[in-house]
């Protein structure tokens, strides 16, 4: 039996993740940036088809090495937001319609304790639906692991790892945020 504080914390973290998703879906990109820590790592590996037994070592490209879909910092994400806001970033002009579904939220690690949580590692599943112009539809499904840090009464994202369940990317662009 977990202490009540653990369930309260999970509720708080879920609420934070849903709030964050809502900011993106409402296109409040600058406010979304405020939820990102200055030392943010935003990482989405590419996934490879590897032989049984090699998944742990070789399935995903690695943070800090070579090429991934995203392996970047807050400055770069800020640039992405700035680009959308120019109004002439044609891959997002007109803006896509996007819904982020977040589920299977699990607290994977709480530091130092649920009663006094300062840092949390939270896992979830995402289903992101993007509809663009008239007929373009993309569905991105996968897993996310977020490192969150308490800042005052709220949280900031310090590290986000996005595991998209695709090998060859089946969308023409990754012009949205995950």
């Amino acid at each position: 039996m977990r202490p009540l504080a653990w369930y309260q914390l999970r509720e708080e973290i879920e609420e934070f993740l849903y709030f964050e998703a809502d900011l993106l879906d409402q296109r409040r990109f600058k406010e979304w940036l405020d939820l990102l820590a200055e030392d943010l790592v935003y990482f989405m590996p590419m996934r490879r088809n590897v032989k049984f037994g090699q998944h742990a070592e070789r399935e995903n490209t690695k943070q800090g090495e070579g090429i991934s879909w995203f392996d970047e910092d807050k400055w770069t994400l800020g640039k992405r937001v700035e680009q959308v806001l120019t109004g002439v970033h044609y891959a997002e002009e007109p803006l896509s319609r996007v819904t982020h579904m977040v589920s299977n939220v699990r607290l994977l690690d709480v530091r130092p304790s649920a009663e006094d949580a300062q840092e949390v590692t939270v896992g979830c599943r995402f289903l992101v639906y993007q509809n663009r112009v008239e007929y373009e539809n993309h569905t991105f499904i996968g897993r996310r692991t977020d490192e969150l840090r308490r800042v005052g009464s709220s949280w900031q994202i310090v590290r986000r790892e996005i595991i998209l369940e695709q090998n060859v990317l089946l969308a023409k662009n990754l012009s949205i945020f995950f």
Partner: peptide, 28 residues
């Protein structure tokens, strides 16, 4: 290599800020 790979990723391909606009043009 590290600085280059970071630049490549933000510039190129479907997640690249420059080339996303190319794909939009080619599609339509």
């Amino acid at each position: 290599k590290d600085v280059l790979r970071r630049f490549y990723m933000r510039y190129s391909g479907p997640a690249g800020m420059t080339e996303q606009d190319d794909m939009e043009n080619w599609l339509y």
